[in-house]
Design a protein around this nucleic acid. Structure first.
Length: 112
DNA sequence: TGCATGACTCGAG
DNA sequence: CCTCGAGCCATGC
């Protein structure tokens, strides 16, 4: 048995994060912090963001269903990726207010 | 080993 | 409701 200098397995966490994102229902959104908690890693919201940032645009994962705690898209507002996320969500019936914010009380995902 | 960098979050003003 | 600052944590140079 190799001696583990770190108690947690980073790859296992990665897999859990991907699994959580994959389980967000269509038409719903989850926050980075929420995904982190569901994956068993509270306080790792930034890590979730980093994982998603490394995904290819053609990823089968519903990465667009993850937004920040304010209900807005965290990607730079002037980028193509940001517009793509907004378009994908809108296509699923997610409503944005005039300031580009999503009503989390209405579309927020509640894990089972 | 140190310091900057992010698709983050929360509380104070 | 918005802006700021501080806390947070893996990565990369």
């Amino acid at each position: 048995m190799p001696h583990r200098r770190r108690p947690r397995d980073p790859d296992a966490l990665l897999q859990r994060i991907l699994a959580v994102v994959d389980s967000i229902p269509r038409g719903c959104v989850a926050t980075y912090g929420q995904v982190a908690r569901e994956a068993g890693a509270p306080r790792h919201a930034r890590h979730v963001g980093r994982v998603l940032a490394r995904l290819s645009a053609a990823s089968p994962l519903p990465w667009h269903r993850v937004v920040n705690a304010s209900g807005t898209i965290s990607l730079r507002g002037d980028g193509a990726a940001c517009r793509a996320q907004r378009r994908l969500l809108r296509r699923e019936g997610v409503r944005f207010d005039r300031l580009g914010r999503i009503d989390l009380a209405r579309h927020g995902w509640r894990a089972v």
